[in-house]
């Protein structure tokens, strides 16, 4: 109860604080530079030069402290020892290059980068194309989209149940092993099979992200001018040809956006690995490695170095996004 009161109180204080700030700041600005009197013109232009910054100030402060400042501190920390007390030069990066877990993480991250965006986009495209053609398509879409709302940890529980292994001679309650058994195969401890277990982890993220890809690609497909499709029908193209040669080329831009969005997510993926294998059996990834060194290793230097590697990997996408955004604003 106490906690609810406190939470409620903070909501009120926080929200009112925000509103009060904006309101008061505007009032003060209008009082200092009134839009009346002999110097109205000069006052108006001065006030309208200041006002945008009043509107932006809280956002700039939050972004600056919570997203920009850490980048520089991380660079600084990555050049220092575990407790951040002594300068060690590039020692942390040297250690990284030689660390087998780091290499494993890099390899796994590249696997994830190759497989997850491709598979999610592919399934999303297929789902979008198929559901747009049937009457209960919207229901189907909602169901495929639903995993989007499930947390990575929740999804991990769901899928761990699917991969569950009981051991020979006992009734299998994991769906995958039960199916394998029914088909006459032998049960496996799926999450402990080296290399391939990575793909079983990826399945979770693909399962979550396909809905996202489907929703966006479906909108893009519907945005294609109907006339181009009708022209292709008159030209004698089959439905598959229409899809591959008329529709898909027209939505390349959207496919690229979906792909990059999922790519960024993949680089940050952490919860799934932590919850399902905690990086054992050769499934470590960068984000979880960083978490390991931060909490279990208590080594701010090495953890920051790993984090910076992730940052470097997303940088090309960041630059591409900014370039695109600038093209649009112009």
């Amino acid at each position: 109860m106490d906690q609810l009161m406190m939470a409620g109180g903070t909501i009120v204080v926080g929200v009112f604080g925000c509103v009060a700030y904006f309101f008061a700041a505007n009032l003060i600005l209008d009082a200092v530079y009134p839009a009346k009197g002999p110097r109205a013109g000069a006052n108006i232009s001065r006030a309208s030069a200041i006002r945008p910054w009043l509107f932006l100030l809280p956002a700039i402060l939050l972004l600056g402290i919570y997203l920009v400042y850490p980048v520089f501190v991380s660079i600084w920390l990555s050049l220092r020892d575990a407790s951040g007390e002594e300068f060690v030069g590039l020692a942390n990066y040297e250690w990284l290059v030689n660390d087998s877990k780091f290499r494993e993480s890099i390899r796994n991250n590249f696997l994830w980068l190759l497989v997850v965006p491709a598979a999610s986009t592919f399934f999303g495209l297929v789902a979008a194309a198929l559901t747009d053609r049937i009457r209960w398509g919207n229901l189907a879409k909602a169901l495929i989209f639903m995993p989007m709302a499930i947390s990575f940890v929740g999804a991990s529980v769901i899928w761990k149940f699917i991969y569950d292994y009981r051991g020979e001679g006992r009734e299998e309650i994991g769906l995958l092993n039960a199916v394998i058994e029914a088909l006459g195969g032998t049960e496996q401890t799926w999450l402990a099979i080296p290399f391939w277990n990575n793909f079983f982890l990826m399945a979770v993220l693909i399962w979550i992200q396909t809905g996202f890809a489907m929703v966006i690609l479906s909108a893009a497909l519907r945005g294609i001018p109907e006339e181009t499709v009708e022209a292709a029908v008159l030209d004698g193209a089959s439905p598959l040809q229409i899809f591959l040669r008329i529709k898909v080329p027209q939505i390349w831009g959207t496919i690229a956006v979906v792909w990059t969005t999922i790519t960024i997510l993949v680089l940050k993926v952490f919860d799934i690995v932590l919850a399902m294998t905690n990086g054992q059996w050769g499934t470590q990834v960068l984000a979880n490695l960083m978490f390991d060194w931060m909490f279990r290793g208590n080594d701010a230097g090495r953890a920051s170095a790993v984090a910076l590697v992730i940052m470097v990997l997303v940088t090309p996408i960041m630059i591409w996004n900014i370039a695109n955004a600038r093209k649009e604003t112009r």
Binding site: A35, A40, G41, I44, S45
Partner: peptide, 8 residues
């Protein structure tokens, strides 16, 4: 009225 805001 060069510098008078629209409403005025």
């Amino acid at each position: 009225v060069n510098d008078v805001p629209p409403a005025q």
